[in-house]
Design a protein around this nucleic acid. Structure first.
Lengths: 133, 133
DNA sequence: CACATAACTTGCTGTTTGCAAGTAATTAGG
DNA sequence: CCTAATTACTTGCAAACAGCAAGTTATGTG
């Protein structure tokens, strides 16, 4: 049995940027958060169909990492007990500024972006509305 | 000869968040940017002594990735021609909001953070001053 | 010219990723 | 209630990547 803690071994230098990257510094974790924030995704199947084609074992691993980090919570769907619902905690909702800053930078510098200024505005407004408590 | 393009294979879904993460979604690239923004690092040796203990081959690889992405530029130091200076481009300076949002989230949720509110304020002010053009 | 400095490169080993296939729990249909 | 479908994973394996140590190249110093 191996540990499979791909969420990163803590470097603990006390730097807050490094701390964040220890949790979020990979190619998938923040895309999962994005799907929850923008796409309304909440089940394993939602994330699998999220567009970017994440592998199923990686998804399971990242969901575990995000859960362990206190960013998402896992609950059984009581109306369909085959499903589990993943929801953002307060700590997870506070990732909105990170996702938005990544979105804005990407929109500016991706030559093939599909994100028009209107879409950016709409998404920003939506996230500011729904996730600021 | 292998390619060693660890900067990530583009998924090109048109999502700006995914685009940003293709370039920046690893455990080191943004720490290098952080060292340039906050720590005034500019040479290979500066980054090696940056605190987190990056491996030399990884550093070389990430500097190449950041250069290829147009985020940093490499120039020979004319006063000491053994050195190369890495500097942020405009595109790189515009990563400030991303680094700041990671910093703020990390400062809030790292139980062992060394970042006091005063430090956060000072760094934020500094970056807003120096890198907003 | 010998030695030091700065910036890498190479080789090796262990870990992580990504793909394909398989399993477990729950529910819907006959 | 038995069977099939749905949902959420787990496992196995080859290839890519990370991290460590050692070696190399280019430049500067005495």
């Amino acid at each position: 049995m191996k540990k499979d803690m791909s969420a990163a071994s803590p470097r603990k230098t006390g730097c807050p940027v490094a701390f964040s990257l220890d949790v979020l510094g990979d190619r998938w974790s923040l895309l999962i958060v994005r799907d929850m924030l923008v796409g309304g995704a909440s089940t394993y199947g939602d994330f699998m169909c999220g567009g970017e084609g994440i592998a199923t074992n990686i998804l399971a691993n990242r969901l575990k990492g995000l859960t362990d980090a206190g960013i998402v919570e896992k609950h059984r769907d009581e109306t369909n007990r085959r499903k589990y619902r993943y929801t953002l905690t307060q700590k997870g909702c506070e990732l909105v500024p990170i996702v938005l800053s990544l979105m804005n930078w990407g929109a500016k510098y991706d030559p093939e972006t599909r994100a028009t200024p209107e879409i950016l505005k709409k998404v920003t407004a939506k996230l500011d509305m729904e996730f600021s408590k």
